[in-house]
């Protein structure tokens, strides 16, 4: 069974075995507005926790998506290059950005669980 964790920068990470799928939360896509462009890293790139993993742009502005975990990029969601609106339609599912093979699982365990993220977002309102 997969587990999901969150960051205070509004990324989500879903862990299946040692592969983490990374995206932005529904709250983040809502804040961003219509996504018109997504820039993804090359497969094989290594990222450290906190590094830029992707770029997401609305009509008005660009934002970086940070990798919450360290490891090697093993897949990117190329569908977003042709249809970036997928991030708005299904941020937590089809709108994922990258898959990273974890170097250190303890980084994942340190992230917020769903309840902690929920209260974090409620605290922002």
């Amino acid at each position: 069974m997969s587990e999901i964790r969150f960051t205070d920068q509004h990324e989500w990470v879903r862990l299946d075995g040692d592969v983490a799928t990374i995206g932005i939360t529904d709250y983040a896509q809502e804040q961003l507005g219509d996504v018109v462009y997504v820039e993804l890293p090359d497969v094989g790139k290594s990222v450290a926790a906190g590094d830029e993993a992707a770029v997401v742009e609305s009509v008005k502005a660009a934002s970086e998506v940070y990798s919450p975990v360290s490891g090697e990029v093993v897949a990117v969601n190329a569908d977003l290059e042709g249809a970036p609106g997928g991030v708005n339609e299904d941020a937590m599912g089809k709108g994922w950005f990258v898959k990273v093979r974890l170097a250190d699982k303890s980084e994942f365990a340190k992230l917020m669980d769903e309840d902690a993220y929920k209260s974090f977002v409620e605290g922002l309102a």
């Binding site: 920068q9 509004h10 990324e11 932005i24 983040a28 804040q31 961003l32 997401v56 609305s58 008005k60 502005a61 660009a62 934002s63 970086e64 998506v65 940070y66």
Partner: peptide, 8 residues
């Protein structure tokens, strides 16, 4: 995700 400039 970084806060978009326009939203700061």
């Amino acid at each position: 995700m970084s806060a978009p400039e326009a939203h700061k």
